[in-house]
Structures are given as structure tokens and as C-alpha cells.
Design a protein around this nucleic acid. Sequence first.
DNA 1: AATCCGGGGCC
DNA 2: GGCCCAGGATT
Length: 373
Amino acid sequence: MRVRKSAAAPASVRDFASVHASLLDWYDEHRRDLPWRQTSDAYAIWLSEVMCQQTRIETVIPYYLRFLSEFPTVMSLAEAPLDRVLTMWSGLGYYRRARMLHGAAQQVVADHGGRFPEAPGELRKLSGVGQYTAGAIASIAYGVRASVVDGNVVRVLSRLFAIGQDMRGGAGLQQIWAIADSMVPTERPGDWNQALMELGATVCTPQSPQCGICPLQSVCEGRRRGIERDLPRLAPKAKPKRWRRVALVATDERGAVLLARRVRDGLFGGLWEPPSVDADGPEEGMPRLGAMTGLTLKKGRCAHVGSFVHILSHRRIEADVCLVKDVKRSATTQNGAKNSTEYDRFEWVDTAMLSERPMTKFARKVLNAAPIG
DNA sequence: AATCCGGGGCC
DNA sequence: GGCCCAGGATT
């Protein structure tokens, strides 16, 4: 296999056989002992790949173990209530992944008799499975010769071949995919893909690549030219806007906490949280929170939690109400307007039952900080 | 092609 | 405070 000329493959990498041997040998000796590297179960590997999307490995491990313990088979996941799945996902972020994971499990049961297909084209039809994840499952679980391109692979290959194209654009990524495709060996394709990513994660790192211990240092064109730190070239991203998020933590006389469930689509879709609004200040958010929850809010004293907390008191119910203000990054919107939070239901929840609700990590933080329970 | 989706670790 | 992370869906 060869890289097409536009890929500018250096002469030293014309023959991939030695590169395969170098990197695979290195991988065999230096790979991290990750839980999903002890199985060939396509379901477990799929789960790990979805969890690892845009998420650090160290973060994923405890979630992966808990999730697999709760849902040991694709069948058990398919049959589980979505709320249970979201609860197990709670804190991991990108919650649409959890909904798509649940849907894909049902697809596998319905369309494939509970066994993951081997062909990347078939895997690609599962919800939440893109080109990367399809290639990962096929190569790692089934030994299919398919390639993967993630952030690590982009970095390693753009350096190895000294490709200066912008890797946020489609053309640059397309070139990396072409190279990755051409490089996957017939033997051990899954290990090769993981080795490429492992190298990017542990040696060929974004800031300070450790070229001195890299198994590919002698054939790396970026290294030879001394431009490895400037690669991959990434066009600057648009800066997100910021505003404050204000949460209302209300408890009734029995100590139950008022929670609201966000609408299914959009930010934190389907998750529960203390009723919250985006506002410039806590006073601005109070009327909206009051209207939303039916509570009459009255400003009380101030305490410090995270940024700071306003303790309020309620007139009709003798309950403590506190307002937590936090500066939170939010997405850029076209008109610069604040995100509107929509809820589809409210509920008073006993504090002992809070762990059973799918919630964001921030919502748990707010509840832990508030004087409840 | 551009934008959105979380949360955390690191510099 | 900015960057990055085992990406994919949506428009």
C-alpha cells in the first residue's frame, strides 16, 4: 500500500512494513491496561468507543465499568428504560450519546438478532455510530481491515507526513482518512488503530511531543523538518459567549426538592435539574423562576458556594429557597440571545431519591452545595 | 461547511 | 482563560 503523492509521504515511509513493525512492537510493550482491552465483545467495545468520544480515557473508565455492570449485554441495554440509561450516563456529558446508544442497542436486537454486524457499512447505520466508531468496532472487535481517524490520528499522521493543511476543514481531514486507509495493515488492524491513537495520547501529544522516545522518530517528516509542534495546523475557532446561569433550590416542609425536567432535545436534553434560567444577575432571574415554579421568591441573605449563593425565603410554604449563581460557558448563538431553558415537567423529589434521577454534574454540585437534606 | 453538544485536565 | 479530548448529528 502506498500513499498517493499529494500526501507527500517522505521517502523513509515509502514502505509501511517497517512502520507497522515499529509501532506494533512499541504498542505491545507500552500500551495502557484499559478495561476494554481485555475483551473482544463487540458490545463492550462499542460502548467504550461511544463513551470515549470527545472524552478523556481516564474520565471514561469508572463510567464504563459501572455501565457494563448495570447493562452487561446489548439485550439488557435495549430493554432498559431510557431514564435508567441516562442516570448511568449522568455526569459524562454529551447526553445525546446516551439516547443514541440506547436506540442503537434496540436496533442491534431488532435488526441483527442481538449481534453487532461486522461490516463498517452496516455498523454505520446504527444511531450514534459514525465513520470513526464503525471502523473502530470492525477492526478491534472483528479484525476487519478498517481505519479510524480521531484527534490523535490526525495529530500523529499530520506530523509523520508533515501535512500543513488546516485540519478543521474537510479537505485536510479527507487527506488524513486517505492516508489512514492506506496504512491499515491486514494483520492486527485493530491493534494498529489503537497503537496510532495510543501514540498520540501518550507520546505524540499536542503540546510537548516526546520525540526522543517515539518509535517513529527516525521516519517522522515533521520531526525531520523541526515543525512537529506546529502540527496539526488548526484554524482558530469562534469564541463562545458567556453569561450567568441561575438555579433555584427550593425545599418544602418535608424536605423534598423541586426539580424540573428539561425538554428532550437540546442542551442537557431529558435531564433533571433545579429550575434554572440564564440571567445577568440573580435579581433578574427571580421573576422568571417564580413564574416558572409558581413560588413567590423573596430575597434573603447571601452565602458563598462556588461563585455565590443567595438564600431566599418563601411566603406561603415555610421553606428555604436558595439561588445559586454560576458563570457558565454557553454556546454562541446567532443573535447573541440567552439560551431559553424549557422544561416539560416539575416534581418535588425526596432527597433520598436524588441519585435515581438523571442529572447533570452541575446540577448535582448545586444540590450538594445547597443547605438541604 | 459550520454549529451544537459537556465536562474536566492541563498549561 | 484557552486548548484539547478514542466524534456524530443536524442544518
